[in-house]
Simulated assay, not measured.
Amino acid sequence: MKRMHFTEANVRALKTDGEYADDEVQYLRLYVTAGGTAKKWGIYKWIAARKHAVRRSLGDYIDLPVDEARQKAKEIYAALKYEASATPKAVTTTLGAALDEYTDSLTLKKRKQPRWADETFRREGVYDDWLERPMGNITAIELEGRQSKITKERGPAAATRALKSFRAVYAYAIRRKLYQGDNVGMDLELIESEPRDRVLNDRERGQVLAALETDEFKFTIWRPFFRLLQLTGVRWGNLAAANWKDVDLEAAIWTIPGSESKMKNVMRVRLRAEAVELFREQVGKDKTWVFPSPKKSRSGHITEPGYAWLRVLEAAGIEHATPHDLRRTFGSVLLRGGAPLEVVKETLGHRNIQTTERHYAFMDDLTVRKYLDGISG
């Protein structure tokens, strides 16, 4: 760049291509090309707050004499100074946009169940109708009302999971400066439920089996799904995301990758004959997922068995049981059948024996009662 004092005569005489700066209005520039046959005015301004330069075109020299170019440059420069010093506009991010970015970040980090918040938010009656709303427009009072509604319709455990996902998305948006307000989810108390020790007794297990064989469930995806939970003791989330590439029906082994396991360890699920047949029933329904989503969920596989399970319980005449209780029931049946604790640990995929002991400490009472009830007199 060459600095010079612009006059009509010396500008008209320029023949060398390049960028020229005026020594009177220092941000005024003249750009000469094509051996001097093309000359254009512009301004150049370095904006420290943005850490980059801003250039603006003012037009051709042939249409804008030197004095007019200086005046126009001053006007635009003043506007740029105001723009640079103005208070930055608050970032407006919708709840759905923040949710998408949070989910993408979990996916890139290869976190287990990266869509956990996405699946929670999009369930009907949770936050699905808030996705287009700006994050700053959702109040703590609104959220409290919504949490009460979720508790009433889905239970306290579902409300707790929903609030955890809400907090996580807001925390991510604040951290990434997608949102400049408060995490309103923190204004509500997070109520952790007490550890459950609910297991289904032999009669209830039979009632569930009978319910699954009724016309309502016999020809649906839920009969093999809940039956496999009974037969394998796996977490329902792992079964919902079962991928055919991990299933070897000839060897009767289903391998759950460490990336999908809660404890981050690879689980080898040994399949008994009835479980193998249930898997075979699903062959051909989808190339990837054992249990593809009938509603075409974003993940591609089923994601929410809660409503179907409630219908099964109603048909079975059973109250206060969750899909996870089937896992606990599976472990308790093994223990009552005399299986060593190490076998139960291996079957359930616990990382260490202490975890198994902690989760099945309640079995001591069942064992004692079994022997007490067998004593006459």
Rank of each mutant, 00 (worst) to 15 (best):
K2P: 00
M4D: 06
F6K: 01
E8T: 13
R12A: 02
A21W: 07
D22V: 05
A34V: 08
H52D: 02
V54M: 05
G59M: 03
V66C: 12
R70S: 01
A84P: 13
A84H: 10
S85G: 12
P88I: 06
G96N: 12
S105V: 08
L106V: 10
K109R: 15
K112E: 10
R115Y: 15
E119P: 08
I138E: 08
T151L: 03
P156H: 10
T160N: 15
A171H: 05
Y179N: 00
I191V: 15
D197A: 04
D202R: 13
R203S: 12
Q207S: 04
A211C: 09
D215K: 12
K218D: 05
F219P: 00
I221F: 07
W236H: 04
N238S: 13
L239Q: 08
A241D: 14
N243W: 10
E250M: 05
E250R: 07
A252I: 08
K262D: 07
L271I: 13
E281Y: 08
V283E: 15
T288E: 03
V290T: 09
F291D: 01
P292D: 06
S293F: 06
I318H: 09
H320C: 01
H324Y: 06
D325M: 14
E346L: 11
T356G: 11
H359R: 10
F362I: 00
L366Q: 02
